[in-house]
Structures are given as structure tokens and as C-alpha cells.
Design a protein around this nucleic acid. Structure first.
Length: 892
RNA sequence: GGACGAUUAGCUCAGUUGGUUAGAGCAGGACCUUUACACGGUCAAGGUCGGGGGUUCGAGUCCCUCAUCGUCCACCA
């Protein structure tokens, strides 16, 4: 083995071998399936830390399950990302001085496909760098043929079921992009604005003096005076006595002369402004709802591109909306309708793409009725059929699902699944999966219709409309495929909290509605990646870490392991570059340990077969029994931990096992073991188990080391090696393993550590051979004299009866009291001070313990073991005090 | 405004049904180049578990309250 691990070479070598040999691919059929669909990244995307976190978690779970022998599918793919992709291509066109309109729809869409062909593979390539064991043979794209078929089928079915409808609705509208925006596509920002107080005269009021055209008026406060011509009512709170007498009366809409009613609605806050709100149903979402409740007229006074239309009044028609605001305010003022203006800060929505101020606008859009879909999806989680991990996310899910709103699914874009609705004749409409089927349906209505008469709806569907079918559209639905039959429902879905609503909840609904079963059993929600200050990573802040740079600097294994180590399902993860050194250092440790094994002939000692240690019989030393027991514990623990998705705990467990148990203790033991050959045969077996435990976390280095050390032959892979489950009861019995022996060695280590500490405290040179004395009556302990001598670097280890009272520096351990014999080496004053401090600390504890044990209730209620332990600790500390007091006299 | 979290060592975080003197990594300290590894080893130090109440024999853990921070949702004309 080379002195240094060449991660780049190993990663470049193994990934293609895995991929080309079908290591990521299983066929449906045999065994228990384990399937996961990847949250498809945007095809325009580049790999960021969020992906790295999300996919590392999935790959750990998938590799672990695969090694357990499960029939595994991790399905990769990308999302066509409607608006994002269209924007990228439009930007490219802009450089050529063209707009998409110059190309026309068909040519533009063709152009986007070309872009996809050329650049769409970027993120897919980058995912390979992470080591993802996704089944590339089954890679899908939300806009590929199969997914598109599924989309058309779903839309048609929902339409036929009356769950898709076209309706007038208030939507967020970007005047620049010319498209409706989903709520999540609108970014709210604080804005310094004004509140204009406008007088609406009550009908029948007398004319007043100059500057006050009417004596009797009500005052309305508004932030958007330009919408005034669209007002169709003013509203007050039903409980507001101030205005109760006005309800049912009419007021005159300034500048228009139109009479509008005064209505009462709970939506109005009494305390805000004047307590009277103008209602503009066509230009405000809340007003729209109020209008629906009261049957108000909806007057749309704006054009698609943010200008006023004729309904705003001849004077304002054609004006930009903000220009109109100024003009209209001026007119209000000159007409005597403007009472006063206040400064007012509010939140204004902006388009998440182009940052234009979003307009609330009435338009014809397609909607999915969500309530009927949501109900079974709620029930599936309530019944426990589908489980959130951690469970608390189910509350958030319920909260949203129980208040679900209809879903606006149409987008005024060109790139996306075109809505399979066809118009003909005079506003007639058919919905069908294909143009041919549409024609059939149309002919049923009007036999004279030809294909040329059908005009398809120009809008496309929201990107999520294909994503919500992902768990089954990717498996072949609506065809009845083997994959679908075998791998659906998928087992785990792993994603971040931010798309629980947009994606997870919708997949639940679609899965149940179209497949009859929820699309997954467990929904694993992890946190998001933040920077060291806890801020979200974003391009604009410049605080992003690039996973590819980290892979370049530290290796993919290092990245993966470090991510796993900082991953908590319960909260967000803060990362900084330094954190990845942990993984890098761990790789180095693994490599060096492997190198050491090779150097010591560990590779041969077991005769090549990992189970060669069976030959060494039952006379194992306590240290050998200890490592075997520790290995058994580690295997069980890692399996248990991963079973409950505690990725971080698993990383810690395997890290500690490898570093502390194997490297720090057992390897040091093996260097100088009484039977080195046997010690290394055991190490060889333990090491092989450790490599496999590590493999889900660090796939590349474990594969490389497994081959270098001869655990695997050419053509074999650790990916398909059996994930360790620990030793059998027979093996444990044959080797004489037991919890007692394990505890015994832990106690022995305490004694070794105690002596090291004494050496350090008394400044004994590390190279010096010292004399150690241990007070114990345990014959088993006395039998360890030789191994203690080596580990303690002592020229002699002697034993005296437990409770012996030697006037030497000592430490009490569960192995016995360890004394260090030394003459004249000590700084007496410093030692006296140290002893005094320790005495004070122990004294406090003894007092507390005594009080506790004197408490009858404690003795009566606490578990026996707890009481016994308290007694033992008390006795131990009393003994410690006695020792220290003796010493303090010595140093006085 | 609503919902849900978080607050434990200088930093990042564990702490599974309440029960030993609350753990790890990093940073910092001391010592060590002992022939796998200084991206290392050994040892030591560092916390009245955000504040205040309560339940209990016993609270980091359960309840209430306050404070601070965060996330998502809805956003007030």
C-alpha cells in the first residue's frame, strides 16, 4: 500500500466499475424490496450542500439496505423546472439579441431541449462525484415521454372526476414575466410606502364647502389608491358600533360617481386605519374572498403587463400602474377627496425570478380541488400507515393539509407540460390525454369538428404537477410494469423540511388517489444546511460551500462522513470548511491502520479467509475477547441506529469503534501481544467488519482498502458484501466472550489510564520505566500483570491486598487502587494544593450522597441498582478521601 | 398574527421511557517525533444544562412562565 491514500484516484477508479458492473441495479422479483426515489434536482441546477446532505443520507440508507441483502432501488432523475429552465434559455437568447417570441413557441421549446441535452447532465455528473449508488439505468426526467404521459393521464382523470376546474381566481401575477406565480414564488419584502386616507361620500349627502365636496363621508385608508376604480364595496367589521348605522347604505366612489354598498365582514380589523376597507375583488386576494362571500362584482382594471385598462377610466387607461397611482392621488387631492397621507411600511410581494412587484390579478386559471384529495392523505398519516421521522413533522403536515387551498396549476410559460385541454367552436372544451383522443371527444359533441379546429390551451402545468407523480410515474405508470408492481410503494422518502407541502404532501395525495396506496412508508425529514453563523446558504450572501470543491480538497468520503456527523434530523446543520477535516482525518486514520496491518502481515495471519480465527480456539486473552465483544456491540448498534434513521449516531458509533477501540487500544495491544499471529488474525476479522460498517458512510476508501488487504478479489465489491450483524452466540460461547470480560478489560484500561495520568501529573518522563502497585484481591486482575506491564510501560507491576494503605500517589479505579512509586520527584507545595482542591470537590459530593442515601424516599422509590450504585460511589469516595488525606500529610 | 422548533463546555453538537459525579469532536493547554498515522499519541482543564416558578424522594429530561434566536404558513387594507 502507498504511504498516502490517493482519494482522487480511488474515486475515479471505483465509481465507473460500480456503475458499469450494475452494482447499483437490481431487478424486481427476489427478496424484500427497499426503494427510494431521489428528490429530483432542477435540471438547471448545480450540486450544492443541500443536495450533498440530502443525498448522502439517502446513499447511506440505500447502501446499508443493499448490504443487508434487500432488493434495492434508488431511482435518480431531474426535474424540468419550468420557469427556471425557461429563464436560463431566455437569458442565453438575450445574448443573441433575441426574445423567445422571436423564435415562436415551437422553436423555443426545441431550443430548451437542445439546452437540456447539452447542459442538463451537469448535476447528474456531479451526483456521481458524491458516490451516489443511484440506479442510473432507471434515470428519469419529469418531462420525458413516460412522465409526460402520466401527467396527461392524471390531468384528464382529475378533470373527468370534477377535481380539475377552470376558474376566475385571484392569483399572484408577475406583469413582467406575464405569468401567474404560486404563493411560494412570491418573495415578500419590507417596503416604505404610504397610507392614503380617502373620503367616500355617503349617498344623499349634501354638498359641503370648498375643499370638502360632501359633508357626510366615510374615510378609507389604502396603500394602493390606483385600484380605486375597481372598488365594488367598502367594508366594516360587523362588531364595530361606530359604523353599524352605515351598513346597507351606499357610498359614492370618488372620481367615478359609481355607487357602491357598505357591507360588514369579519375580515375587517377594527383597529387598523379607520376601520373601513375598500373592497377591490379583482385586485386583492382578501378582497376577492370578501367579494365571493357578498356576491360583489369583480372589475379588472389592469392589463396583463401592469397597465391600466379602460375600466379604470378613460383618463387612466394605458398608464403604468405606478404612474396611475400618482395621477389618481393628484386627482383625489384636487377633487377634495384626499384627507391626508401617512407614512406606512408594509410587505410587498416581488417575483422570485425577475423581482418585479407582483400584482394580485383576476385571471382564468386551472385549479385542482384539493380537499377531497387531502382527506385520505391525512388519514394515512393519522393511522400510522405513513410515518414522519421525526414524528413532529406530522403536526406541520396536518396543519397544512387541514387548511388546504385549491392548487393553481396553470402557468403562462412555454417550457412544461402543455395542458391537455382543447378548445373548439364557440368556447367548447374537451380534455383528453392526446390530440387524437381530444378529437374523438370533440366529434361526439360536434361531428363536423376537424383536427384543425382544435386549439390546445396555451398554458403549461406547474412543475410540481409532474413532481407529485414522481414515485409512480418513474416506475412506469400508467402502464402496469414489473417495477411498479414490485417497488411501489417506495420505502423511504428523504427530504428537507422546506418542501413538505409543495412536494411531499402532494405526492401523498397523488399516490393514494391514483395508486390506491401512499407512495412511501417513511418520510424522513432532515434540516437544511447553514453557514457557520447559522445563515441560509445563498449565492447572494456568498457563503455557500461548494461540495465539489470540498471533494477536491478533502475527498468524497470525507465530505460524506463529515456531513453524516453533523447531520441531525432534529435541527439545521451549521457547516464550515473546517468541519470536513474530521472526515479527511478519519480517512487518513483508516488508511494508516490498513497500512499497519499490511506491514505486520495481518493480511496473511488469517489465511485469507476472514473466519480463519475459528482455528485459534478458546484461549483468547482478555484484550482479544474485549475487541470481539466490542465489535459485536458496534455491529448491533449501527444496525439499530440506522433502523431509526439516526445517521449521525451511526457515524459516531462507527468512528468511535474504529478509532478508539480498534486503533487506540487493540492495535496497540496487538503490537506486543503474547501470540501476535492470533492477535492479528482477530484484528483481520474485526477490521473487515469495521470496513463494512463504514462502507455506507465512506464507500470509496472502504472498497479500496478491502481490495488492498485482500478481503476481496478482483471482480468482487464491498457494496454487495454482507453488512455485519455481530457474532453468533456459538462463536461468542466458543471464544468465551462475555459482558463481564468486556467490563473487566474496561476496568483494566481505567487502571492503565490512571497510571498514565499519575506519570503526567508527577512529570515522570514518558520513556522512564516506573514501578506500579495495584491494590486488589481479584485473582483475574493479578493474572493481567504482563499485559499491564506492557501497557503501563512499567518495569514491574506488583499487587497488594485491596484496602492496603500505601503512602504513594494513587488513583482509585474500578480495577483497584493504582499506586505510582516514585521518590523525590514531586513538587510538594503544588501537590498539596492539588490535593486540597480535590478533597473539597469530593467532600461536597460525599455530603450530597449521604443526604441522598439518608432519604428514606429515595431508598424506597429509586431502582435498586441506582441505590446500590450510589452506595458504591459513596464508599469509593470515602476511600479516596482517606488516600488523599494520607498523601496530604506526606506533602505537608 | 398562527404553527412548530431551539437555547447544554470558547465553538459545533450528543444526551432514547425522569435515576451514577452531564458526554463527544474542534479550538485552546501540558507532555511525547515510542518503528501505521503530527490529518498522530498521552494526559489534564473547561458546564450552577437561557432566566424564574412548579410537579417529584429525585429534573438537562415533565408542566407553567418569561427572555432570546430560528423555521414554515398567513400577511392587515
Amino acid at each position: 500500500m502507498d504511504k498516502h491514500y490517493d482519494a482522487k484516484a480511488a474515486e475515479a477508479k471505483w465509481y465507473p466499475i460500480w456503475e458499469n458492473n450494475g452494482c447499483f441495479h437490481d431487478e424486481p422479483g427476489k427478496g424484500e424490496p427497499y426503494s427510494v426515489v431521489i428528490p429530483p434536482p432542477n435540471v438547471t441546477g448545480i450540486l450544492h450542500m443541500g443536495h450533498a446532505l440530502n443525498q448522502t443520507i439517502q446513499d447511506i440508507l440505500v447502501r446499508w439496505r443493499r448490504m443487508q441483502g434487500r432488493n434495492t432501488l434508488w431511482l435518480p432523475g431531474t426535474d424540468h423546472a419550468g420557469i427556471a429552465t425557461q429563464n436560463v434559455v431566455e437569458k442565453a437568447l438575450k445574448k443573441e439579441g433575441k426574445r423567445r417570441q422571436d423564435l415562436g413557441r415551437e422553436a423555443f421549446v426545441e431550443r430548451v431541449w437542445e439546452w437540456k441535452k447539452q447542459y442538463g447532465g451537469t448535476i447528474v455528473h456531479q451526483q456521481r462525484m458524491l458516490g451516489n449508488s443511484t440506479d442510473w439505468q432507471r434515470e428519469r426526467f419529469t418531462f420525458d415521454e413516460g412522465c409526460s404521459k402520466a401527467v396527461a393521464k392524471v390531468f384528464t382523470r382529475l378533470y373527468d372526476e370534477g377535481l380539475v376546474y377552470k376558474g376566475n381566481y385571484i392569483v399572484n401575477w408577475c406583469p413582467r414575466c406575464g405569468t401567474a406565480l404560486a404563493n411560494d414564488e412570491v418573495e415578500h419584502e419590507a417596503h416604505h410606502g404610504n397610507l392614503w386616507y380617502v373620503r367616500y361620500p355617503v349617498v344623499g349627502s349634501e354638498k359641503g364647502a370648498a375643499g370638502e365636496p360632501y359633508k357626510d363621508y366615510i374615510m378609507v385608508a389604502t396603500t394602493r389608491p390606483e385600484t380605486l376604480p375597481g372598488d365594488t364595496a367598502v367594508a366594516v367589521n360587523p362588531k364595530d358600533e361606530r359604523y353599524a348605522h352605515l351598513v346597507g347604505k351606499k357610498v359614492i366612489l370618488p372620481l367615478t360617481g359609481r355607487e357602491i354598498p357598505v357591507i360588514s365582514d369579519d375580515y375587517v380589523e377594527r383597529e387598523f386605519g379607520t376601520g373601513i376597507v375598500k373592497i377591490t375583488p379583482a385586485h386583492d386576494p382578501n378582497d376577492f374572498l370578501v367579494g365571493k362571500r357578498h356576491g360583489l362584482e369583480e372589475i379588472n382594471i389592469m392589463t396583463d403587463d401592469g397597465h391600466m385598462n379602460e375600466l379604470a377610466g378613460a383618463k387612466y387607461a394605458g398608464m403604468d400602474r405606478f404612474e396611475c397611482r400618482k395621477a389618481l392621488v393628484a386627482d383625489l387631492e384636487s377633487g377634495g377627496y384626499l384627507d391626508h397621507i401617512e407614512d406606512y411600511d408594509n410587505q410587498v410581494g416581488h417575483c422570485y425570478r425577475c423581482h418585479e412587484v407582483v400584482e394580485s390579478r383576476l385571471s382564468k386559471q386551472w385549479f385542482v380541488r384539493m380537499k377531497p384529495l387531502a382527506e385520505p392523505a391525512i388519514a394515512a398519516v393519522k393511522s400510522g400507515e405513513v410515518r414522519f421521522v421525526p414524528d413532529r413533522w406530522s403536526k406541520i403536515y396536518f396543519n397544512w393539509m387541514e387548511n388546504i387551498q385549491d392548487w393553481c396549476i396553470s402557468r403562462q410559460l412555454w417550457w412544461g407540460h402543455r395542458i391537455p385541454a382543447y378548445y373548439f367552436g364557440d368556447g367548447k372544451l374537451v380534455v383528453a390525454e392526446t390530440p387524437e383522443l381530444a378529437l374523438e371527444k370533440a366529434k361526439a359533441i360536434d361531428p363536423n369538428v376537424t383536427a384543425a379546429d382544435l386549439e390546445q390551451d396555451p398554458d403549461v402545468l406547474d412543475t410540481w404537477f409532474s413532481s407529485w407523480l414522481w414515485p409512480f410515474s418513474t416506475l412506469g405508470w400508467p402502464e402496469k410494469t414489473k417495477d411498479l408492481d414490485y417497488y411501489y410503494p417506495t420505502t423511504d422518502l428523504v427530504t428537507a423540511q422546506d418542501i413538505i407541502f409543495f412536494w411531499v404532501a402532494r405526492m401523498m395525495m397523488a399516490g393514494i388517489h391514483f395508486m390506491g396506496r401512499p407512495p412511501f412508508r417513511n418520510i424522513v425529514i432532515h434540516g437544511i444546511v447553514r453557514d457557520a453563523q447559522g445563515r441560509k446558504m445563498s449565492k447572494s450572501l456568498g457563503n455557500s460551500l461548494d461540495p465539489l470543491e470540498l471533494i477536491d480538497a478533502y475527498s468524497a468520503d470525507a465530505l460524506r462522513f463529515s456531513i453524516a456527523l453533523i447531520t441531525s434530523l432534529d435541527c439545521d446543520s451549521k457547516v464550515s470548511k473546517e468541519k470536513f477535516e474530521i472526515g479527511r482525518n478519519f480517512c487518513t486514520k483508516i488508511w494508516n491502520a490498513a497500512r499497519f496491518m499490511e506491514m505486520m502481515g495481518g493480511g496473511e495471519a488469517g489465511g485469507g479467509a476472514p473466519d480463519g480465527l475459528a482455528a485459534f480456539g478458546r484461549d483468547l486473552t482478555s484484550d482479544e475477547k474485549h475487541i470481539l465483544w466490542a465489535t459485536d456491540i458496534a455491529c448491533r448498534k449501527v444496525n439499530d441506529i440506522l433502523e431509526s434513521y439516526r445517521i449521525q449516531d451511526g457515524a459516531l458509533a462507527v468512528y468511535d469503534f474504529f478509532w478508539t477501540q480498534i486503533c487506540d487500544w487493540y492495535v496497540e495491544y496487538a503490537k506486543d501481544a503474547p501470540d501476535k499471529k492470533r492477535a492479528f488474525a482477530i484484528l483481520r476479522d474485526v477490521f473487515w467488519k469495521a470496513l463494512r460498517l463504514l462502507h455506507p458512510y465512506m464507500p470509496f476508501i472502504t472498497e479500496e482498502v478491502a481490495h488492498q488487504l485482500g478481503y476481496l478479489k478482483d471482480g468482487e465489491t464491498i457494496m454487495r458484501a454482507k453488512f455485519p450483524t455481530g457474532y453468533s452466540d456459538e462463536e461468542k460461547a466458543a471464544w468465551g466472550l462475555s459482558q463481564e470480560t468486556y467490563d473487566f478489560v474496561n476496568a483494566k484500561r481505567e487502571a492503565i489510564t490512571a497510571l498514565r495520568a499519575l506519570r503526567a501529573e508527577y512529570k515522570v518522563a514518558p520513556s522512564a520505566f516506573v514501578k506500579a502497585t495495584i491494590a486488589t484481591d481479584d485473582p483475574k486482575a493479578k493474572a493481567e500483570a504482563e499485559s499491564l506491564k506492557r501497557a503501563m510501560r512499567a518495569e514491574a507491576v506488583e499487587f497488594v491486598a485491596a484496602g492496603s494503605d500505601l503512602a504513594m500517589p494513587s488513583k482509585i479505579t474500578s480495577f483497584g487502587t493504582v499506586y505510582l512509586s516514585l521518590e523525590g520527584l514531586v513538587d510538594k507545595a503544588a501537590e498539596a494544593k492539588r490535593i486540597a482542591a480535590e478533597l473539597a470537590k469530593i467532600g461536597g459530593f460525599i455530603k450530597a450522597s449521604e443526604a441522598k442515601l439518608a432519604n428514606e424516599n429515595f431508598v424506597a422509590h429509586a431502582p435498586e441498582a441506582v441505590v446500590a450504585e450510589a452506595r458504591r460511589k459513596l464508599a469509593e469516595n470515602r476511600e479516596k478521601v482517606a488516600q488523599l488525606e494520607k498523601l496530604s500529610k506526606l506533602f505537608a
